[in-house]
């Protein structure tokens, strides 16, 4: 039950970060991706800030034998590249460039009730469900004891 509080705390921090950073604004995301136009490099700073905290933070945390609220860390174990990964990333990137939302900002923007946000999020859910009907992938998550 404590893990619900962990999820809520992380979600609140994540949503605040998306709003403050400007990632919640599709026009800003598109301006970052528009390197041939009036390029706005701001979102590189979002990634830099996130990695400055998460990189060292993960290193420290993963020295522990277990997280505070659960019995084990659950980390993706695979390291090799495959065509599903690359094709999926390419399709995602096309959608990202077309709409200016990736999954986090799309959800974080839902509360503001724009019809385009709702259309994006509903179709995103449909796309996630549709992808399950592809042939089954190899197991991709391992529990680190």
């Amino acid at each position: 039950m404590r893990s619900v509080l962990g999820g809520l705390a992380a979600g609140l921090l994540f949503g605040t970060g998306l709003a403050i950073s400007g990632m919640i604004n599709p026009a800003k995301v598109m301006a970052f991706l528009d390197i041939a136009g009036a390029w706005d490099p701001s979102l590189a700073f979002v990634m830099l800030g996130a990695l400055l905290v998460a990189g060292p933070g993960y290193r420290l945390i993963l020295r522990r034998s277990r997280p505070l609220f659960e019995d084990a860390f659950v980390l993706p174990a695979r390291r090799e590249l495959d065509s599903r990964l690359l094709a999926g990333a390419a399709l995602f990137g096309i959608g990202w460039g077309l709409g200016g939302y990736c999954p986090g900002p799309a959800l974080a923007a839902l509360g503001f009730g724009k019809v385009q946000t709702l259309a994006f999020a509903a179709a995103m859910a449909a796309g996630m469900i549709a992808a399950r009907y592809l042939p089954a992938p190899a197991a991709h998550s391992g529990v680190r004891a």
Binding site: R2, S3, L5, G6, G7, A9, A10, G11, L13, F14, T16, G17, L18, A19, I20, S21, G22, M23, F45, V46, M47, L48, G49, A50, L51, L52, V53, A54, G57, Y58, I61, L62, R66, P67, L68, F69, E70, A72, F73, V74
Partner: peptide, 18 residues
Amino acid sequence: GGMLIGLAAVVLMLLNGR
């Protein structure tokens, strides 16, 4: 904002291991 997002990732890993 990015640092807050990184902090969110750290919090979820530290508390829930995810």
